[in-house]
Simulated scan of single mutants.
Amino acid sequence: MMTKLAEVCRHIRSKNAGPYWVTFDLFFDGPENFTRYSDHPALGPALMQRLFGADPALVQRYPVPRLNMLKISYARTAAQGGMVERDMHCGQQFVRLLDVELD
């Protein structure tokens, strides 16, 4: 059975990072899972492209080992607050990450 991201994180959140960026914070449930999964290829730019239409060249990753946290940010395809915006603050975007398979 495949390990899912939601099984190795104690908290996952998403938010806007200004009008042009979206950020995900993945708080792993301990240093072991942070070390094992924070640099996992399944959490790379290709995932952000597949799930959110992000340009892989504009995906940024920021590991924060003392918090067992990985921050992943990508440039929005359109500025925040557009006419067809469905989640202006990006607070619900993390849901797509919960079932990402890691192993």
Results as ranks from 00 to 15, higher is better:
Q60A: 09
K15P: 00
P56D: 05
L70P: 06
C90I: 00
R50N: 06
M1R: 14
D55N: 15
T35S: 09
L26P: 03
F52I: 14
G82L: 09
T3F: 07
W21T: 08
M48A: 00
D55A: 13
S38T: 04
T3W: 05
Y20F: 06
P63I: 04
M48I: 01
P31I: 03
G82T: 13
R96Q: 09
Y37G: 01
L5T: 11
G44E: 05
T3D: 08
T3H: 04
I72A: 13
D103V: 14
D99T: 12
Q60C: 10
L70C: 05
K15F: 00
M69N: 08
S14E: 10
L102G: 11
P45C: 01
S14R: 07
Y20R: 10
A75M: 11
Y37T: 01
E85S: 14
S14K: 03
M1K: 13
V95W: 01
M1W: 10
V100F: 03
M83P: 12
N68V: 04
D103R: 13
Q92K: 15
M2R: 11
K71G: 02
G82W: 15
H89A: 13
M69S: 03
A57C: 03
L43S: 03
R61V: 07
M48K: 04
T23N: 12
Y74D: 01
K4D: 04
G18V: 08
Q49V: 00
L58Y: 02
F28H: 06
D39I: 01
A78R: 14
R66D: 10
V59K: 11
T3K: 13
S14Q: 10
V8I: 14
L58Q: 15
